[in-house]
Simulated scan of single mutants.
Amino acid sequence: MESDTANELCTTKTNNGTCVPISECPTALSLLKLGDLKTIFNISCGFEKDSPKVCCTLSESVIVFNKNTEETATNRPNKVTTAKQVDYIPLITDKPLDPLPVREVCGKLKIQNRIYGGKNTDIGEFPWIARLKYENEFYGCAASLITDRYVITSAHCVQDNLIGKPTSVRLGDWDEETEIDCVENICNNKPVDVNITNYFFYPEYNVQNKTVHDIALLKLEEPVNFTDFIQPVCLPTTEYVMMQDYLQDSSYWAAGWGLTEYGQTSPIKRKVKLEAVPTKICEGIFPLIPKTSFPYLICAGGREGKDTCRGDSGGPLVRQVMENYENNWYLFGITSLGSGRCGTEGLPGFYTRVSKYINWIRDIISKN
């Protein structure tokens, strides 16, 4: 895809046009209603702040459909049908019955950022991150709070026989060496420890093949009270947000207490910005990973010194998205696996693609 930033002209594989916000392109809005996310992905041309832009065709008389149909804007079906039910399309439920938090609750930062350009997080950043505690007070992985009773993590953090299963989660932590943390006269509360009562793994996860479906839900013994320092992250449940989970030139934030460039784990929660790497490039870098696994993965990173590492597994890969004038942080990926040489130029990491599992997540939370 080529784009002329001076006059906003753009060229994609399917059309020539003007790079505009998706809300200003009738073609893109029609594609969105029809559920044709693939074509929208192919005509994306960047972002304006947190809003996606598309290469909108100069002639708006024809809608670019996928190869399964040749209908045009003047010959649309009488009844618009959604795409067939697949694993990444959410269940249609009444909003009061949806077990996931509403956007007014999830993905919000109550304490505004105060550290700029550093690697340590601010005391109020990423308030959904949980630390998994194993036997003998050992912290081995991270997780993300998604409701007041559930955290989400990597399945290998729970089924790895070398470290056993986690017994509890810790929420609201920042500096593991102190109980009450203070930065610029802002102090958090004492971290909250909650026992885990049940584990749920995606049915197709295979502990012998950790390259796909590396996802697990952990149910907490009691509900967690949300505070300024303990908040759930939003999940990509709408088509609009889903189509932004793995766009060209998109970037994410990952955070945790894993290994640093100095070879030691960090006592303070740290963050790193990672850029998306196209699937085709990742397939070439990691030829031993089955191609059937890649639709369920987000490939990101590959810049020297910027990576997640051992101890960050199960943690969040997030970015902000604005929808209907509401700006929220969404969980797009779960730290899964890497090359083993953290922060090596040209070797990105893999993150479980959360949008592929929304139905399963809703189903587990609703029934348990």
Rank of each mutant, 00 (worst) to 15 (best):
E2S: 08
N7S: 10
E8C: 04
T11C: 01
K13R: 14
N15L: 06
G17H: 13
P21K: 06
C25A: 02
A28M: 03
L29K: 12
G35E: 05
D36S: 08
K38N: 07
I43Q: 08
E48R: 14
E48Q: 15
S59Y: 05
S61I: 02
E71T: 05
T72H: 13
N78F: 07
V80N: 11
T81N: 10
A83T: 07
A83D: 10
K84F: 10
K84V: 15
K84M: 07
Y88P: 00
P90A: 15
I92D: 04
D94E: 15
L97D: 11
G107T: 04
K108Q: 03
K108D: 01
L109P: 04
K110L: 06
I115L: 14
Y116F: 11
Y116P: 00
T121K: 04
G124A: 03
E125M: 12
E125G: 07
I129Y: 07
A130F: 02
K133M: 04
E135H: 14
E135D: 14
E135M: 10
N136D: 11
F138M: 13
Y139F: 14
A142W: 00
A142Y: 01
R149H: 13
R149A: 04
V151M: 00
A155C: 08
N161K: 11
P166C: 09
S168N: 06
L171C: 10
L171T: 03
D175N: 15
I180D: 09
C187T: 00
N188Q: 09
I196V: 08
Y199R: 00
F201N: 13
P203E: 07
P203D: 09
K210S: 12
T211K: 09
D214E: 07
N225H: 05
T227F: 06
T237W: 02
Q244P: 01
D249T: 06
Y252C: 02
L259A: 08
T260F: 03
G263F: 02
P267M: 05
K271W: 09
L274H: 04
P278A: 06
K280D: 10
I281C: 04
G284T: 12
A300C: 01
R303K: 14
E304M: 13
G305P: 11
K306N: 05
D312V: 05
V318L: 01
Q320T: 15
E323C: 04
E323F: 09
N328C: 09
N328W: 04
Y330L: 03
L337M: 13
S339K: 01
G343S: 03
T344V: 10
F350M: 13
F350G: 02
Y357H: 10
N359T: 05
D363Y: 14
D363N: 15
N368W: 12
